[in-house]
């Protein structure tokens, strides 16, 4: 077959390796994909240069061609990264190209891992390239909850030690201002505030939780607490709750903040009680909060059950079975 590569003098020295899907020996491929001829040709040349472990300009441009047809091909990205480093290519140029590919394929994760592999090179990126933050905000303008982008941003923060760079918090606050229900942004804020700065220690979703030697009761708790920071975060969560009282994110953020500080849910009892009075409930999450406060207080179990029953019967009927599960546990505790 005459193709782009078979007719190109630059590729004349290469013998392409055809796809062997096993069918010639009687195997029946599962979920066969009808590849277009251009893709079949390009990948037959890709196999040939990979088999020769060739690190060359022509192999590099071939990987770009294959990626443009199938960005989910998982080895072509690794091969490309290896060539980029072997030929000492300009990685900023690569990033510019990646920006376009990322905006085109929003849900592809290989792209983001490739980006991480490039940025990991201390020789090329000894310090944080500020343009990264601009590009990530461009991605968030497309989808402010894109999981791959947030995961990458988390990695950037840890790699370049950006927890306390003003830009990080500014971006989070910009996104929360646009959508106070953006749970991804809330989560990023938690990581900025409470992520362990000592990167030699195991990283954990709750402070200390990743360390085998930590007692279960201590997990999620900071060893040194900056009380002003905690108060500021609690205030921030309260303001967000006042903007949208049924928004789950800040309620759970506040729980995480209190736990990090080793301060209990009861600290918010006064604030939360204001949301719950006879015949006037301002937030179902406040009812749940009070149920949790009362459930932990001896002699207050009946109050807890009253709150859980209110959720079950009035505000959250979908979770009837869950509220019953909670009520049963309290009954068992009392009995």
């Amino acid at each position: 077959m005459e193709g782009k590569y078979s007719t190109d003098p630059e590729w004349a020295s290469v013998t392409p390796i055809d796809l062997d899907d096993g069918s010639s020996s009687g195997a029946m491929p599962l979920a066969t994909i009808a590849y277009p001829a251009e893709y079949l040709e390009a990948t037959s040349y890709l196999r040939a240069v990979m088999a020769a472990n060739e690190m060359s300009e022509r192999a590099l441009s071939l990987t770009k061609d294959v990626i443009s047809m199938n960005p989910a091909h998982y080895t072509v990205w690794i091969y490309r990264a290896k060539i980029l480093f072997a030929l000492d290519k300009d990685l900023n140029e690569e990033l510019n190209w990646l920006n376009d590919v990322s905006l085109k394929y929003l849900k592809n994760y290989q792209i983001w891992h490739h980006r991480q592999v490039l940025l990991s090179s201390k020789a090329h990126f000894p310090t944080f390239p500020p343009k990264e933050a601009d590009f990530l905000m461009e991605m968030f303008a497309q989808d402010s909850k894109n999981y791959h982008v947030w995961t990458y941003r988390h990695w950037l923060v840890r790699h370049f030690r950006l927890w306390d760079q003003p830009r990080e918090l500014e971006d989070v606050e910009f996104l929360l201002k646009a959508d106070v229900r953006n749970n991804s942004a809330w989560n990023h804020r938690y990581m900025l505030r409470f992520g362990p700065r000592d990167t030699s220690l195991p990283d954990a979703g709750m402070v200390n939780a990743g360390d085998l030697s930590t007692a279960p009761t201590e997990k999620g708790r900071l060893s040194i607490v900056d009380e002003d920071l905690i108060d500021g975060e609690l205030k921030f969560a309260q303001e967000a709750i006042l903007r949208a009282p049924e928004n789950r994110s800040p309620w759970w953020y506040a729980r995480g903040v209190l736990r990090a500080a080793g301060r209990g849910l009861a600290e918010w009892e006064g604030f939360v009680s204001g949301f719950v009075s006879e015949g006037a409930v301002k937030s179902s999450h406040a009812v749940e909060w009070l149920a949790d406060v009362f459930a932990e207080r001896a002699g207050k179990e009946a109050e807890a059950v009253r709150m859980l029953t209110m959720l079950k019967e009035e505000f959250d009927p979908i979770r009837k079975n869950y509220w019953d599960y909670r009520i049963r546990k309290l009954d068992q505790a009392v009995a």
Binding site: N187, Y190, G205, R255
Partner: peptide
């Protein structure tokens, strides 16, 4: 370590 402050689990520690 992948469990987050809201009780669910994330792709890796401190993600959503």
């Amino acid at each position: 370590a992948c469990q987050t402050y809201d009780g669910g689990m994330a792709e890796s520690p401190f993600c959503e």
